[in-house]
C-alpha cells in the first residue's frame, strides 16, 4: 500500500504539516480533536484519490497559533490552504471536530467542494442525543470511550504514564478549548446548513459514545439530500475500526 509523504506549508504564518499520497481527484481529510490514533485508515483512499491529511494548527506536527481561536479561524485557514495548494475543488471528509469544521466550511464555500462526507461530526446540538462533553471526561477514560473494540487503538497508547503523550494530549485539548470551551457546538449551523448543495454523506459507528449515531437524521434533515450510513460494532473511531466504512466513503466519493 502507498506510503504517505510528509509536506510542510506555511499558511497565514503558521507552519502546517500534511501527509499526502496518491493521485487523482483531491481528498482533503480534516481530523478530530486528537491525532494520537494516526491516519493508517486513510491509506486505501490513496489508491483512488490524491489524499491530503493536514494537521490543524495546534495539533500533531503543525505549529501552534493561539490567535486561531474560533471555528471560523480554521475555516479561513483551510480556504487559504486550498488557495495556496492551487486546489479549486476537493472532496472534503471531516471527522468529529473536523466534521464540524468541514460542515462550517461547506456552508460558506460549497463551490470549493465536490462531495462532502461528515464522519460522526461534532458541532450540532441535538437535545435528544447529545454529544458527550469530552472536557468533562478524565483523559485516561477517553480512549476506551472512543472505540467499540479497544484492540483497535491499543497500539497507539503508551503502556503506562508517559510524559510526552500526556503533554501532546494537553496541547491538543488546549487547541480544542480555544474554539469549543464556551460552547461545544455552533447554534448557527441549523440556520445555514441548507447552503450545502453538494452530495453529502454522514457516517457513524452504531456504538459511538461520543457523537451518538442518532444525530445522523438531524444532519440529514438540514443538509438537502444528505444520506446516512451507520456501521454496526463500531464506536466513534468508525474509520479506524471498520474498513467497510473507509470503503463506503471511497465509493461515495468516486
Amino acid at each position: 500500500m502507498t506510503a504517505f509523504t510528509r509536506e510542510e506549508i506555511t499558511v497565514g504564518g503558521v507552519k502546517t504539516v500534511y501527509l499526502t499520497a496518491g493521485k487523482g481527484e483531491p481528498l482533503l481529510f480534516l481530523h478530530g480533536g486528537g491525532t494520537f490514533h494516526g491516519f493508517e485508515f486513510a491509506k486505501p483512499w490513496a489508491e483512488h484519490f490524491r489524499v491530503l491529511l493536514p494537521y490543524h494548527p495546534g495539533f500533531g506536527e503543525s505549529d501552534d497559533d493561539p490567535g486561531l481561536s474560533s471555528m471560523q479561524d480554521y475555516v479561513m485557514h483551510y480556504i487559504e490552504l486550498l488557495d495556496q495548494l492551487g486546489l479549486d475543488k476537493v472532496n472534503l471528509v471531516g471527522f468529529s471536530l473536523g466534521g464540524w469544521l468541514a460542515a462550517s466550511f461547506a456552508t460558506q464555500h460549497t463551490r470549493r467542494i465536490r462531495k462532502l462526507v461528515l464522519v460522526a461530526p461534532a458541532g450540532l446540538r441535538v437535545k435528544e442525543a447529545p454529544t458527550a462533553d469530552l472536557f468533562r471526561i478524565p483523559g485516561e477514560q477517553v480512549p476506551a470511550m472512543l472505540v467499540h473494540n479497544f484492540d483497535v487503538i491499543k497500539p497507539h497508547l503508551p503502556a503506562g504514564f508517559d510524559v510526552d503523550f500526556t503533554v501532546d494530549r494537553f496541547r491538543e485539548i488546549t487547541t480544542v478549548a480555544r474554539v469549543a470551551w464556551e460552547r461545544s457546538h455552533d447554534p448557527k449551523l441549523p440556520r445555514w446548513l441548507h447552503r450545502v448543495t453538494v452530495p453529502t454523506m454522514l457516517v457513524y459507528g452504531e456504538q459511538d459514545r461520543i457523537v451518538p449515531a442518532a444525530q445522523g437524521p438531524h444532519w440529514a434533515r438540514l443538509i438537502p439530500g444528505a444520506t446516512v450510513r451507520t456501521f454496526p460494532e463500531a464506536g466513534h473511531l468508525v474509520l479506524d475500526e471498520k474498513p467497510e466504512a473507509v470503503k463506503a466513503v471511497q465509493q461515495f466519493l468516486q
Binding site: 501552534d64 472536557f135 510524559v163 500526556t166 503533554v167 494537553f170 496541547r171 485539548i173 488546549t174 480544542v176 478549548a177 480555544r178 470551551w181
Partner: peptide, 15 residues
C-alpha cells in the same frame, strides 16, 4: 490544570 490554563511547556514541567 484545565485545558489551556498553562502552556504545554509549563504543563510538561508540572507533570
Amino acid at each position: 490544570v484545565p485545558p489551556g490554563y498553562v502552556t504545554p511547556a509549563e504543563f510538561r514541567k508540572r507533570i
